[in-house]
Design a protein around this nucleic acid. Sequence first.
DNA 1: CGGCAACTTGATCAGGGTCAACAATAGTGG
DNA 2: CCACTATTGTTGACCCTGATCAAGTTGCCG
Lengths: 256, 256
Amino acid sequence: MPSQPRPVQEIKEVFALPQLKAVCSNCSLRELCLPLGLTAEEMDALDRTIHQRIPVKRGATLFRAGDSFRSIYAVRTGFFKTCVSAEDGREQVTGFHMSGELIGLDAIGVERHGCDAVALEDCEVCELPFARLESLARDIPALTRHFYKLMSREIVRDQGVMLLLGNMRAEERLAVFLLNLSQRLAARGFSSTGFHLRMTREEIGSYLGLKLETVSRAFSKFQADGLLKVQNKYVELLDPVGLKNLLGGCASLQGQ
Amino acid sequence: MPSQPRPVQEIKEVFALPQLKAVCSNCSLRELCLPLGLTAEEMDALDRTIHQRIPVKRGATLFRAGDSFRSIYAVRTGFFKTCVSAEDGREQVTGFHMSGELIGLDAIGVERHGCDAVALEDCEVCELPFARLESLARDIPALTRHFYKLMSREIVRDQGVMLLLGNMRAEERLAVFLLNLSQRLAARGFSSTGFHLRMTREEIGSYLGLKLETVSRAFSKFQADGLLKVQNKYVELLDPVGLKNLLGGCASLQGQ
DNA sequence: CGGCAACTTGATCAGGGTCAACAATAGTGG
DNA sequence: CCACTATTGTTGACCCTGATCAAGTTGCCG
């Protein structure tokens, strides 16, 4: 499935209305996303570097591993997965990304994307051309710093996943996953206890280093223990504290 | 074991000789380390931001998780491990770091180190105070860009580890580990086929998500298969190609 | 030389992978 | 709107990889 054809930039230049131009300043995500901590003027400048909001249909790829790197993308609405694959077809989901989170940071180093980014539902992203972002950051120290922070946070997040993959048992992994999701949804004003999973059991399994059957069994176990109710993709956490207790004290499940 | 007392800066100010000041420009690692791609003048400026070379004794910690973040460190000589720990004591080695590699990038976001850095042999590091580095980078675009690259590369490296931990079997993991080590040593002018491991079986196991017995068994198996010769910490790769073939084509073992 | 940490190897066990059958759901086209 | 099909999810039975437990060896450092 090819990625959605992108509205060419000229269209924006011609038809752009004032309220369309001021992307970040009006965005409900500005406290979570890149603009965090910028002044009004700085945010205006950032707005001008944003090409356009791009719709990405469910199942479409925003970019693929190997694509040459031009832009970072901020998720505005919807839900993405990123995954790396080995030559033999083995696939590893490296992250799930929701609104306000940036995708593509791993590509800066080699100027080529190292993973695929796939929309798990109909999405909208803000494209941030890296060259412009870089020159803008030269004038706005706060932006550079925030950018450092976001990259650094990604590293911390990955370390948490490594701890999970290296040390935890199946049920612990799923508990961490659910609690993390819950927390991120809460930060966006959604319910932290009832939510729809956008990904399949197989994708959860890939992310957690488990097979889909194991994920399914762990869900059933949690349900039998009264920790949650699961019906299909809808999950209701009945006892978040009980879930946390499963971990015997692993608070390193922050990050995005 | 507390980290080595650090020579206070005044000592440098008073006794610094010209050849001690020009740290990076004379450093054999400048093609691997932070200065890569800088002009002579830019490198001079970078030299001035470097506090001092700090010796770290074997077993000492350079920093601990929770320490407030001041500096990034470049390994000049020696070998470090970084590890995160959960509250219940579970420890995960997140990386091994050799000369020319930077440690501490994960701390930028939260201004607090997220892992311990422990010297596995007597080491020397260059301390790069982040505040100075940041203001210097404002004047040297190439430095900023290179800094982005290094952070981004760290993210890519972590993704590779996630693939390893999520998908690979014990022997594959050890093969990836050995080939990666071999490659990094080669990049530094050391033999790519014969080398001393600086870490214990347990540390290798922690990094690879395996128990030390499993690591030991995998070594024995490789030796029985004629892939390598191992005596204690000394390893000689007899058949690197054979090792690679074990992987059925996972080239994603780059990174540091 | 003694004491301790690190390593090796064997025996046993269990967590989770694999294979398989089936059920439920969502997406498709008439 | 409904029927049909493909995808996704659930559950069971069995097996294998790697964990665990244990004993003994080697090498290192004081």
